[in-house]
Design a binder for these strands. Structure first.
Lengths: 338, 338
DNA sequence: CCGAGCCGATGAAACCTTTCAATTTCTGCG
DNA sequence: CGCAGAAATTGAAAGGTTTCATCGGCTCGG
């Protein structure tokens, strides 16, 4: 196997200078058609492949966008990623999907890596409310947009109004006549979780109910397994003190709770009504189709990507913006008998 | 904002040569502790961040592994990705997740990008049986391991025996007494799909049933939406010619079919028994918990990553290997009344 | 007190591309 | 046929890191 060919080899073979080869690659219109063809033929014959590292070294920044999410296993984030990727494509950028798994250390590790790579920019759903590592890389020049996580005016962000979503969910349960309701979600420091809870409390107050009507059951994670565990805790309670409805911070938890209820012979919504959050595809396919709060996930990704491009290009003149979408309640059988 | 600092600035500040700075970064044991501390302090003070592009230019190859999958929205692939990433971490490699979406063009685009980046290697679930682009980049020196896709001895691959999986699923349905069975899956050129179908046919023959007992319903994609569509086709059939069981090429299809049955008032498994494939988390949480063929997805990812590392390091002496895992049938209520 | 040998530090070369000012070639017009 | 101006091409420099052959200084044994 011969050594990989570089621009120099191509130039030699085509009988032109390396500058011309580079022009064929990057500014074809500057090169006379005849010359261009000759160079292209040489490229094909030698199997030349541009070295992106060298190009990037010269250019200063890469064409890669880092998308750091809390959980790739959560379809909400893959839907989001689809929106990001589609938009990135239009700008000739590629996306690397990084999984922080709710872990601040892994998150920081990914950020370091992205900074070393001189990523075009970073889209991140931070684990904690304040993330110093994000400020650091921004100050050093890597554009960052916060995703699904509203922020103060100091940086760009894209989010869905989680408080309103919480209100929708809770108001719906209250309207169904529930008096003992549990909130299932955690860890509480995650902003999305606490905002949804805050919205739920707001709805409670608005309905004139006492705060004790809402019990908070904090989970260790936002996945199906944690939902199953919490489901067992709920099912273990004596019927008279058991909540008659739960509002789960996301659909994975809700599916876990639902699964346990089914396994333990409790009826949904008869014994326990369930509201989820995100309205992932699987919510409507569940044992009992889930009532859920829908987020425009793909649009979220698209908006985030567009803000990032703006921030990267408009360097100085860029005005940080906070885009906020509104959620929507989708009612299904898990709260209302079909 | 001052210009980003480079090794030269660090060297100057610490009063050493650039070679020493590089050694602190890459071979700390070669540097006297006192000098090392001085350099590290300078790095911290200047906020120096290593430029990965320059490092890679020098090194010739990057530390990034490309994982090209058919559908990031399919939890099977995210589980796989989790296995890959965990193993990659151990080798100090990072993973970029690329979505081909069953589209050969997108697949090729991703491969080009990865080659330009001089990726450490590529793990790919190819769209088509023969993928010339893969051969091309391998010949030019990028290690490739085929995932979930057995191959001839000319390259490394990791897969699960899809034919056996198909046999398991079909044999199970036959054992339940079904005489009219449909296979739902597609596009057929996808190897996993056709192998599972081949296995199903094998089981049919082994049971001494006529080939006509199995109807193939080809789908355009392997997702929930395609499952719903096919579900409607099935439900539209008059009851006496309608199949009494379906074997779906993956769980997403199965969930789609199931969803339609529920919506149209048909009973599962009473009117239609359903078997899925992959045993994703959501399969057990479905309206009717799905019987499915389980694949060791995380192990698959781990094995693939290990083969890749071996191929990359053992350059010359490397022997291509084909690792094949065995699937397992998980029986739930979608085929057997609880 | 001298030389061998070791540890630590040095700095120039190499990696491959892109850019841009300078130079050559071409075109059209007087 | 010559010239101005446009178009096409050139070639050297720059970008930041790692490597490696080399050198300086120190220790230890003779």
């Amino acid at each position: 196997m011969r050594e990989p060919a570089g621009v120099i080899d191509v130039a030699e073979r085509a009988g032109v200078s390396i500058g011309t080869v580079s022009n064929v690659l990057n500014h074809p219109e500057r090169v006379a058609p005849a010359t261009r063809d000759r160079v292209l033929r040489a490229i094909a014959e030698l199997g030349f492949v541009r070295n992106e590292a060298a190009r990037q070294l010269r250019a200063g920044r890469g064409r890669t966008v880092g998308l750091v999410v809390l959980d790739v296993g959560n379809p909400f984030f893959t839907d989001l990623a689809a929106g990001v990727e589609k938009t990135a494509d239009q700008y000739g950028l590629s996306v690397v999907l990084c999984n922080s798994g709710d872990d601040a250390e892994r998150e920081e590790h990914h950020l370091s890596l992205l900074e070393e790579q001189r990523a075009f920019g970073v889209l991140i759903t931070p684990v904690a409310r304040r993330t110093p590592a994000v400020d650091v890389i921004r100050r050093r020049g890597t554009p960052v947009v916060l995703v699904d996580h509203g922020s103060s005016a100091r940086q760009c962000s894209v989010s869905v109004n989680d408080q309103v979503g919480g209100e929708f969910a809770m108001a719906h349960l209250i309207a169904q006549g529930h008096k003992r309701i549990a909130f299932v979600g955690g860890p509480l420091p995650i902003k999305q979780v606490s905002e949804r809870l805050a919205g739920a409390r707001l709805a409670l107050r608005a309905a004139g109910m006492r705060p004790g009507a809402l019990t908070v059951m904090e989970t260790r994670a936002l996945n199906v397994a944690a939902g199953r565990q919490t489901g067992d805790l709920i099912a273990d309670l004596p019927a008279r003190s058991r909540p008659t409805a739960v509002f789960c911070a996301n659909d994975l938890l809700a599916l876990g709770v639902l699964q346990t209820m089914t396994r333990r012979g409790l009826l949904v919504p008869g014994d326990l009504a369930i509201v989820g959050y995100d309205d992932i595809d699987f919510a409507s396919a569940a044992a009992v189709p889930l009532t859920s709060v829908r987020q425009p996930s793909a649009q979220l990704g698209q908006a985030a990507m567009e803000l990032l491009v703006d921030e990267a290009h408009a360097a100085q003149s860029h005005q940080h913006r906070q885009v906020v979408f509104e959620p929507e309640l989708v009612v299904r059988e898990s709260t209302v008998l079909g």
